[in-house]
Write a protein that binds this DNA or RNA. Sequence first.
DNA 1: TTCATTTTTTTACGCGCGTAAATTATTAAT
DNA 2: ATTAATAATTTACGCGCGTAAAAAAATGAA
Lengths: 343, 343
Amino acid sequence: MNDPKIRNMEDFAAVIGISRPTVSKFFNDPDSVRKSTRKRIEAALERYEYRPNIYAVNQNRRQTKNVGLVVPNLTDPFFAGIARTIEGLIVNAGFNPLLLSSHGGPEQEIANLDSLRAIKPAGVLLAPLGRASDTDQVAAFAGEVPTVLFDANLDGIGEAFFGSDNTQSIGLIVEYLCRTGEPPVFFEMKTPVNPNAHRRHNAYFAAMERLGHEPHVIQVSGEGWEFEEIGFREGTRVIAEGRLPTNTILCSNDRLAIGLLSAAFESGLKVGLGSGCTLRVAGHDDHPFSRYTCPTLTTVSQDYDSIAARSVETLMRLIESEIRAEKREVTLFQGRLTMRGSA
Amino acid sequence: MNDPKIRNMEDFAAVIGISRPTVSKFFNDPDSVRKSTRKRIEAALERYEYRPNIYAVNQNRRQTKNVGLVVPNLTDPFFAGIARTIEGLIVNAGFNPLLLSSHGGPEQEIANLDSLRAIKPAGVLLAPLGRASDTDQVAAFAGEVPTVLFDANLDGIGEAFFGSDNTQSIGLIVEYLCRTGEPPVFFEMKTPVNPNAHRRHNAYFAAMERLGHEPHVIQVSGEGWEFEEIGFREGTRVIAEGRLPTNTILCSNDRLAIGLLSAAFESGLKVGLGSGCTLRVAGHDDHPFSRYTCPTLTTVSQDYDSIAARSVETLMRLIESEIRAEKREVTLFQGRLTMRGSA
DNA sequence: TTCATTTTTTTACGCGCGTAAATTATTAAT
DNA sequence: ATTAATAATTTACGCGCGTAAAAAAATGAA
């Protein structure tokens, strides 16, 4: 009897003895009402556990509090980790994150953007597939919703881009490898989906030439996102065929390196720096599993804390200002050499 | 001029020349209107690309088309894979999946359920943390929303549970290990979060006794979900201290095994079946990375296609019938031995 | 053609909230 | 106590749709 059923904000305002518009104001910003009023509402909130109906709220607000987060592939622990970090930042900013994975396919990527359209997000953080992306459709979406790209850039799309400086990071590890042993061959996919792959390719050439070495590239075939499988299969073949012009291999990314290390192990090759080792392998990204390969993987870690933080900050600023960026901002963060056992 | 702006269902119905309620009926079930009417609406849909406002729809419908999917940790590729499979099944069933990760923490798990409450889902698929879960709160949620548990069971909570038959699967690999070499020690965490860990522990004892061997257990300390780290650190210690009563180790799960294999490698131990190998290691789960460990990991694969399919089917039946299950269904699927290089 | 059935339309109401304008009450400073 | 500033209330409307009941129209069979 003492606690009547609260069905809506009207009821809630009634039991507490103030008007509904005031309560509405409170929920949009607790500090916009008098302190004493706020206390009363908060006290009532404890007793009656009322919560505004999200659908009614979002139907009437100019902006929802939803922020979309789209990553190319959640099955990749690398992206799962980034997604988790970004999710936390979005929550801290007072927004509601919606995580979607493109599962490596452009149709799913567009389907994700379509789903997001339906919920009218205040903004979207998008790590696109890259070359495989349907750029026209992504661009159309970014024209409708404030969108910030990260990880992989699509020229001119979105309000800003945050990623890694592949030229710097690849330069870093090439220099390290050359300084401590034979210059590396570059191990990569022939038709990579990610634009970073191309930048790393070019960065490798630039670094090798700068250091006065002749670049060598091993391009392996394979489609999709099963990089470990490709690294393993093609690594096995390359080793068997004795196609290695040097004892040092720099992989375009850690997942390829993980497959390659497995292939080397199965082929009986000892990888690492110790005596008896006939091969050095390095990667790029500092994948969560690169600490547990055999041997542990020397790589370049991306500054994902900065990328995540700046991406979210930028999007939040865009959302608050309610205007589009005057010019598209492209920011690249420096990689850090992470030396482990494999090179 | 020819294509007026469509702002709502009223406008849309107007341009096509039929009434709004008919259009509304169409969107709820295209087959509920006359065939000719349906064609006309679909034709108009091409031209005007109108879509019903989700928030208005969900405010008025008795049930939303949302289905929550909560996994304990998306950073674990194992769960990321399952989540992906289940997401697809939910979409095929005509619902809208919402993926949330508990990040290994009970607070986040409850926060996830709270978020789901706000969107009034038609049903929820929950892989709970297990022992760490706040069972009272989870139970309260399952009392409000049709909930099906999978992967980890919480006694009496939810309408049904689908998981693996740990007794069978552990029995399978123990039998295999005993048949092909020395009986295994069981390598596990002292305070595991997952209830499956306990079942596997007991299953190991049962299997060993059945086969007439004395069970041995190595319990390692460590908190959280960084299983590889724990497996590596404690594996290194166990190897260094020479605490192994046999040359065969069965790990409670693949992630511990991945860490342990890395530890063995770093310690100079040769793992596998070939000559010169002094250790055998087996895991459980068929983790995506178990194909790329050195050596590749012998394990038991869970039948996750069946678990996913049956979980979704059951939830859909519950949602359609709009009544709760008369009795809680518990279904365990058989594991399959996956022999690779490590044992 | 006539009648029964199915489909569509009309009419009307409600969902739960945001928001704006005008009015009234409260607060804090003079 | 008076005044000015701030906060709360009242009133009113709108958001975009679901849905129910009754009336009208279209359909198909006899």
